[in-house]
């Protein structure tokens, strides 16, 4: 329980790296050829830390999340390279039964749409008890007691009667609470949340985000949060990783990233999102479109170059490496110093 007292952050260097991903490559083998959905992604998360993985549809953020628990449908998807270390154990080396023991126990996942993620023909009680019965030697009675306790902790009113409810009988916010309860039952070291509030209304989203913050503080789990919503990022994350077209383009502590984004794409995302102070006419869109994975095959140079205001000839010919802009900020851009300088001028 030391975590709840001290707050969280990457600054706590004593914390062990719960998750370490090295050079992850997930490809989809299709008739159109090999599509590199995740192309050499490396990052880590400490205990008690929340890392947000941000990007637009098709950038590879969800495939990254699914790859972590080896949930990418195969075929067509295949993890072709890299290492995924959970507390030092390489998940990619594990047998099928070993990885199944990890899922729901040492690492759990919360999905965007709880109605499709929950089993429609199992009631809440049985569905949640299953997690405990699967991973521990607890009896049914003990499992039921643990489930009841967890339902109370995630703020479900009248939990006894909810045990008999089926997912379709619950509201969207309630279902997401059930999902969170299910994910936390086994007290996982790593919690992956894939757009957990995107399907919810804004007042319910606020409830669920608050619950997730409380639960993170109570359990000290490492959290990977996948989202496209910069507001949610600002409220939840300690560190942010921005992905574009299968690659990490920037990684930084949340305050650094919002105060001084070093990648033109990050800057563009922020300037194209209205917030509560944006005046009319201030919103500047990123021109063009996210490249399709198929189009990337023939692409040399930086993947963002066709949409980038800072792009030079070098950018179109050579892809930049991910390099450090400062101690804790890394960026994949030849011109990150210009990107930072451009913000000082404004």
């Amino acid at each position: 329980m030391t975590y709840s007292a001290t707050g969280f952050g990457s600054q706590d260097q004593n914390n062990a790296k719960v998750l370490q991903v090295e050079n992850l490559e997930t490809h989809f083998i299709t008739r159109a050829g090999v599509l590199k959905a995740v192309d050499g992604v490396s990052f880590h998360i400490h205990a008690g830390e929340t890392v947000a993985l941000v990007g637009e549809s098709g950038c590879g953020k969800s495939v990254t999340a699914l790859s972590l628990l080896r949930l990418v449908p195969n075929p067509p998807g295949e993890i072709v390279g890299g290492r995924i270390l959970l507390d030092g154990d390489d998940l990619l080396e594990m047998s099928q039964s070993e990885i199944e023991d990890v899922r729901g126990d040492r690492a759990a996942m919360i999905f965007q749409e709880p109605l499709t993620a929950l089993n429609p023909i199992l009631n809440v009680g049985n569905q949640l008890s299953e997690v405990i019965l699967r991973h521990t030697k607890a009896s049914k009675r003990e499992a039921r007691a643990l489930v009841l306790d967890m339902l109370k902790r995630v703020g479900i009113s009248d939990p006894e009667s909810r045990l008999k409810a089926y997912p379709h009988q619950l509201s969207g916010g309630m279902r997401q609470r059930v999902m969170i309860a299910m994910a936390l039952l086994a007290n996982p070291a790593l919690l992956i949340a894939d757009e957990p509030t995107t399907a919810l209304d804004v007042t319910i989203q606020a409830q669920i985000l608050e619950l997730m913050r409380d639960m993170r503080d109570q359990t000290g789990a490492a959290v990977l949060m996948i989202t496209h919503d910069l507001g949610v990022v600002a409220e939840m994350a300690d560190r942010v990783i921005v992905m574009y077209a299968g690659r990490i383009v920037e990684s930084a502590p949340v305050r650094t990233l919002f105060a001084s984004p070093a990648h033109p794409y990050t800057l563009g995302l922020m300037r194209s999102t209205p917030n509560l102070t944006t005046q009319r006419g201030e919103l500047s869109a990123i021109p063009g479109l996210v490249p399709t994975l198929a189009a990337l095959k023939d692409m040399e140079g930086c993947r963002f170059a066709p949409r980038c205001a800072f792009a030079s000839q070098k950018c179109r010919e050579h892809e930049p490496p991910l390099e450090n802009a400062s101690n804790d900020q890394s960026v994949r851009c030849w011109h990150w110093d210009q990107v930072l300088a451009s913000q000082v001028a404004v």
């Binding site: 007042t203 606020a206 608050e210 919002f258």
Partner: peptide, 20 residues
């Protein structure tokens, strides 16, 4: 309830509605 994209903003007195 709107999440604001500004991590330096501490939001005091936030109203979180209960129920649906």
């Amino acid at each position: 309830a709107i999440p604001v994209p500004d991590p330096s903003l501490e939001r005091a007195g936030r109203v979180i509605l209960e129920g649906d």
